[in-house]
Design a protein around this nucleic acid. Structure first.
Lengths: 155, 155
DNA sequence: AACATTTAAGACTAATTTGTCTTAAATATA
DNA sequence: TATATTTAAGACAAATTAGTCTTAAATGTT
C-alpha cells in the first residue's frame, strides 16, 4: 500500500474540511467528519492530532468547536498531509529498503526508482486541497464509499 | 512503504539467485541466500514458497538442493515477484482506498494517480532480473547493507 | 539401511498498525 | 455555577505483518 490507512483518512478528511472551509465553516467538529466519511471518530481524532501538532491544523474545544486549517486550502499541498502522517520516507528511501542507498552506493534499482519516486513526489507536492475540492465539486467526485462532493453542500 | 518487507526481500533474494544462475548454479540453497543477504532463513523460506506456488520458482530437497527460477532471469520481470508477494493492488487500487474508484466513479485524485501508478507499473514490468544483475555486476551495486554484486563472484 | 542435507508446513511469538474506550480538560451557554 | 459540547490523552484490544522455532518429508551419500 502506498499510503497508510491513517494517511488516506487524513487526506479524505482534509478534503471534507476544505470543502466546508469554502462554505465559511472554519471549525468543523470531528464527529461530523467521521459521520460523513464513515470513519472511526476516535481514530480520526488521533489523526487530526498529528495534523495539528504538525502545525497544519488548529483545534478549538467546546460547543461550536472543531478543527480547521491554519492556512487556506489553496495553500495546502497533499504532501504536507502525507509528511505529517506517514513521513517523507516514501519519497527519499530505497525501494529495496537498503540504508544509505543513493548516488554514492546505489542498489540496482536506484536509478529507475529515483525517477519514479520523483513523479510520486511531484504528484503530492503539486496538488492542493483547493484544487481537488473545486474539481470534486465540479465533477461530483467521491469522498467516501458512500458520499460525493455534492452531498456536502447543505449540512 | 511502497513494498512489504517480504516483497523487498523477495526481490533482493531473486537478484542474488539470478546472479548465481548466470554462474551455472541453478539450485541455490535458501540458507546460502539468507546468510549472504543477512535475512532470516525461515522467513525467506516462506517467501520463496510464495514464489514457487506462484510458478516463478521450483525447489529441490536434499543435498545439492535449493531453489531456482523456472525460466531464465532475462525473462523474469520484477512485477512478477511483486505480484506473487504483495499482489497487484498497488497498480490497480485507488490511492485514497475507495472501493470501485475508476473512470466511472473517480475520487478527486484519480486522474493524477492513474497516471503515476502507471509509471510505477511500467518501472516494475519493464525491468528484468537479468537487466539488474548485469548492471549490478558492471557497476558493483549493492544487494544488502553489507555486500555488493562483486562479492558474489566466488562462492 | 542409516545418515546428513535440504525444503515444506505449521505453530508460535513479536512488532506494528489499526481501531475502541474511558477519562480529563477546555469552552460556550443557560 | 451547572451543564452540554467538544478536543486531548492515554490505556487497551484487534488485526496485520514480520519473524522464530519445531517437526515432517524428500533426497542424496555412504
Amino acid at each position: 500500500m502506498l499510503l497508510s490507512k491513517a494517511c488516506i483518512y487524513a487526506i479524505r478528511a482534509s478534503l471534507y474540511i476544505a470543502a466546508m472551509h469554502e462554505q465559511q465553516r472554519p471549525f468543523v467538529p470531528i464527529r461530523e467528519v467521521s459521520d460523513k466519511l464513515n470513519l472511526s471518530f476516535h481514530f480520526l481524532t488521533k489523526i487530526f492530532q498529528q495534523l495539528t501538532s504538525a502545525g497544519l491544523m488548529k483545534s478549538y474545544k467546546g460547543p461550536n468547536g472543531g478543527i480547521a486549517f491554519t492556512k487556506k486550502p489553496a495553500e495546502i499541498k497533499l504532501i504536507e498531509i502525507v509528511a505529517a502522517v506517514d513521513g517523507l520516507g516514501l519519497f527519499h528511501e530505497c525501494v529495496l529498503g537498503l540504508p544509505g542507498c543513493g548516488k554514492n552506493k546505489p542498489c540496482p534499482l536506484h536509478d529507475k526508482w529515483a525517477y519514479t519516486r520523483e513523479a510520486l513526489q511531484i504528484m503530492f507536492s503539486s496538488t492542493s486541497l483547493d484544487e481537488l475540492t473545486s474539481k470534486g465539486k465540479r465533477m461530483n467526485l467521491r469522498l467516501s464509499d458512500e458520499i460525493s462532493m455534492e452531498d456536502l453542500i447543505s449540512p
